[in-house]
């Protein structure tokens, strides 16, 4: 049923997806998540190519595991040092991979929105594995899938996203998916890391983590990067951790609060080890669900391709 409602060649972001489309992906992911050893044939004999111009280990290995479990051959190309990657160059690179025979292109690069204009110029299906500070759709889908499996629903949930919202594609994709499915999202962090007008995306804003956590069902803790300190966006990591880090003390009285983190964790900065490894943490489950969600996305795109094959 979900496969029929899916009518897109690419997955570029969640902002333009309907709640039905997002639920369709989650529904398609459920059987894969129920049975972590499940395999499929949706990509049998197909070539999936990776083009990553930013370092990534977990997103890439998750996509790769998903593709292989669906029977695909995979081809990796890491465009090291392509921070100056220009649009034409990126298009050329992707066309080359297409010429090699790739039907699925999994792309991560550092420029927001760089994939959007390329999708119509490629026959292959484009999967956005993170574009700048814009979107990281499969990460948000795995977060939402984890939430749905742990809490039984999304509608009505109160979810806090804490950290560097300004630079976070994970936050943006999460806001789009969660609000589309009826959750109430609060973003929390220092003023310098909360981008202007984020309310218009449907999120509430807080600068006080204790207040934001009151009544919350889940908190998605973003990774804090040291380099932000050099631009005076935060004063120091300890100063940040004191106000926005998740510690056992801060968790006291929130025993049903689910902790998510996209990884890799800066232990002791945004998240104490006791929280990261404690019973409320869903971090490893997120990783497992990541494979399921990516298998679901590949399957839906494969069915689209089958329907649109000449």
């Amino acid at each position: 049923m979900a496969a029929i409602s899916w009518d897109r060649k690419d997955l570029l972001g969640l902002e333009t997806l309907s709640s039905g489309e997002i639920e369709g992906i989650l529904d398609a992911a459920a059987p894969f998540a129920d049975n972590p050893r499940s395999r499929g044939k949706a990509l049998s004999g197909r070539l999936v190519a990776f083009f990553f111009s930013e370092p990534s280990t977990r997103t890439r290995s998750s996509f790769e595991a998903a593709a292989k479990r669906l029977g695909a051959d995979v081809l990796g190309l890491s465009a090291a040092g392509s921070s100056a990657a220009k649009g034409e160059t990126l298009l050329d690179s992707l066309r080359n991979l297409e010429a090699v025979g790739a039907e699925y292109l999994v792309v991560r690069q550092e420029l927001s929105g760089a994939l959007e204009p390329l999708a119509s110029k490629l026959k292959a299906s484009l999967l956005n594995a993170g574009d700048g500070c814009h979107e990281h759709p499969t990460q948000a889908l795995l977060d939402v899938l984890t939430l749905r499996r742990k809490k039984g629903r999304i509608k009505g949930l109160r979810v806090v996203i804490v950290g560097d919202i300004l630079h976070s594609r994970v936050a943006r994709s999460n806001i789009h998916a969660l609000t589309a499915l009826g959750a109430r999202v609060t973003v929390c962090g220092p003023s310098a890391l909360i981008p202007a007008g984020i309310e218009r995306l449907g999120a509430r804003v807080s600068h006080d983590l204790n207040a934001a956590l009151a009544g919350a069902d889940a908190v998605n803790v973003l990774r804090q990067q040291l380099e932000r300190q050099n631009r005076n966006l935060i004063a120091s990591l300890p100063d940040y951790a004191g106000r926005y880090g998740l510690s056992p003390e801060r968790l006291a009285g929130h025993k049903d609060l689910l902790i998510l983190h996209p990884g890799p964790v800066n232990r002791g900065v945004e998240l104490d080890s006791a929280c990261a490894d404690g019973p409320q943490s869903a971090i490893l489950e997120q990783v497992a669900n990541g494979v399921a969600v990516r298998m679901a996305v590949f399957s839906l795109l494969a069915s689209w391709r089958a329907r649109h094959a000449r």
Binding site: S112, G113, C133, R172, P195, A196, E199, L201
Partner: peptide, 15 residues
């Protein structure tokens, strides 16, 4: 411009 449109697009903005 530093506002909702730049925020949605994930772009650094000019206040």
């Amino acid at each position: 411009h530093e506002g909702a449109a730049a925020t949605a697009k994930g772009l650094r903005a000019i206040p």
